[in-house]
Amino acid sequence: MAAGPYSEKVMDHFMNPRNVGEIESADGVGEVGNPACGDMMRLYLKIDEGMVVDAKFRTFGCGAAIASSSMLTEMIKGKTVDEARAITNQHVADALDGLPAVKIHCSVMAEQAVKSALDDYAKKHAG
């Protein structure tokens, strides 16, 4: 159901977010944002043989931040590490049928969260 400035898809992912939670001994953890700026996202990845096999998140933020987080986890599951890294904020926003102009930063946060989690994974598995 659409509400105010958000698409139905945003509202669906906000009301029923997918993949909320944590992964114990995750292969990569990314954290971006800051509650002072209005939103913060923590992303946990389980990676097996170069594939993102599981993704979970916790987010403090507005409707768009929670929906972007949820959509992102859906998008990266089953993708290779390289494919996941190639996801941009525009992909996330498009998958949500768009975001209001002032909320674009929420999709940017999602993009940064994957990159941060994959950097963490790369660091842990370096050498």
């Binding site: 105010g4 400035p5 209005g38 939103d39 102009a101 002032v102 674009i104 930063h105």
Partner: peptide
């Protein structure tokens, strides 16, 4: 709040 009161703003400067 930061976000909601400016939802109809046009750029992130409004946040």
């Amino acid at each position: 709040s930061a976000c909601s009161s400016n939802l109809r703003g046009h750029d992130e400067e409004d946040l």
